[in-house]
Amino acid sequence: MLEVENLWVRYGTVEAVKGVSFSVPAGSIVSLIGANGAGKTTSLRALTGLVKPGAGELRFGSTSLVGLAPHQVVGLGIAHVPEGRRLFPKMTVLENLTMGAYRRSRADVASTLIMVYEHFPILKERGRQLAGSLSGGEQQMLAIARALMSRPKLLLLDEPSMGLSPIMTAEVGKIIRQINALDVSIILVEQNAMLALTLAQYGYVLQTGQLVMQGKAQDLLRDEGVKKAYLGL
């Protein structure tokens, strides 16, 4: 469904991503793990047009994503939950969700909202509250729900567990599984490698902008190097 080939991204004089390739089969969860500065976030930002790749090919189905603006990428069915959630804090929960469906018709918005509320009942209760007043966990739920409002085929999640308690992290994990069960493919970027590899079928390990290892998630979980470097075991 998604193919990334030899992606290079540069910020000023710093090469943030140096020739990374990965692919996401339809219906799967693929995870990118690695330390801070490994190039995970930058890879996602290149996919949705927030940064321009220096080189490389990005194909979604048969469409090339290179040179597209973020709003065009959303239109193709790719939703991106950026690092730090990036909600609209002075809008209500409902307004945030409606923004997620910006390119869709009003009738679509109503039916999608019903579906989203089934998965996130708390957001229905909090509908009139300002997004900025939600707890960290609720904000993460809202960020994911907002992305679902565009009815994506592919969902990019950047550090969904950041700053959350272990209980909330488990809750987010459950939600990610539920979304995947709706036939939405997912790229999960995480520093919490344990969470990422438990959820994903396939994993890629990035280090200072380069791909250093890849494999089935269960194999990576058993790998001694991965255990030592990323799982703290």
């Binding site: 949705t48 927030l50 603006a69 973020p70 709003h71 959303v74 239109g75 939703a79 991106h80 950026p82 990036r86 909600l87 609209f88 804090p89 002075k90 809008m91 923004m99 997620g100 910006y102 390119r103 907002r146 565009s150």
Partner: peptide, 16 residues
């Protein structure tokens, strides 16, 4: 209003 609060997040919702 979305652009005023977070331009990049607005673009990611599909705003041109």
């Amino acid at each position: 209003r979305a652009i005023e609060q977070d331009k990049e997040a607005a673009a990611l919702q599909g705003v041109n």
